[in-house]
Write a protein that binds this DNA or RNA. Sequence first.
DNA 1: TATTGTTATACTCTATAACTATA
DNA 2: TATAGTTATAGAGTATAACAATA
Lengths: 161, 161
Amino acid sequence: MDEGLAPDQLQTYFALMEAAGLLQHHVEQQLRAEGGLSYVQFQLLARLADAKGRLSMTELADGVVYSRSGLTYQAGLLEKAGLITRGPCPDDERATLVTITDDGLALLQRVLPGHVRVTRELLFAPLGPDDLRHLGDIMARVRDHMRTQPPRSAAPRKRRA
Amino acid sequence: MDEGLAPDQLQTYFALMEAAGLLQHHVEQQLRAEGGLSYVQFQLLARLADAKGRLSMTELADGVVYSRSGLTYQAGLLEKAGLITRGPCPDDERATLVTITDDGLALLQRVLPGHVRVTRELLFAPLGPDDLRHLGDIMARVRDHMRTQPPRSAAPRKRRA
DNA sequence: TATTGTTATACTCTATAACTATA
DNA sequence: TATAGTTATAGAGTATAACAATA
């Protein structure tokens, strides 16, 4: 099996992508309806709430957004909504430190129950304790592996639509 | 545990979402670079290739796109690129039947090896045979469960950014 | 020179509603 | 009336490149 995927690999891949897509779609609907947030914005707020201190723009972007300007755009929206603040960094005057506001934390709290509800009903409902253990172990390993992969600068041919 | 998620559930959920996001991002880069296709377009072509016959627009949209006009837009692009054709349906004159062209099939073939390569290197590299079996079984069950869930018309409160 | 962040801009994609035509 | 598909249009989001300021 040097090239191509075995049939069970292909099925697993497609099942994973479809399930993740459906889950993300439902979660985005819930976040939008109950908090006016996109999933990216939710991720940024959650990351800021987790890192109780402040994060630089670069640290905040990591893994969530794939371009500098993309984060500047989102941070602009969140700041305008009063959910975060941006300020100078004492250590490095080039950097901007981002902090979540009390309103931001409150919004996160308001949105979380529904978020958890959707996740539980859609993802965990059909799984037993063993499934959960296996899935958590596997996905943690996969995620860690992906994080350490080089950005893969591949860009060979290019044609068509 | 009637409300909220256990810590291991939360970790599993986040690991799944991050891994799926990273995988999708890499796959999209590869598809764009080697075939000029978005992931949605790839899904549509793959679905058409799989269903060797023709599919109506509604059948084609199912699960991939969440609005009628979204599919019309994508189908317009694919047709303009010569990858699909649209024609009338004998059974139901309201419907449009979509077919993948030889060029569409050829493009799919050209893109598939790289697609498989990314998937193997990113998703399957860190997994053993048991992992693959577990993951395939779990995700198939989760996907099937999600498919049968009602569209959940929830849309309670609505505020903020 | 390299890095942090912003801005300007163009582009892709999606969703809503209005519309046509057929069942 | 309900359904299949298209169109018009507006809005959100992303990426590229050029830029300013600091390391």
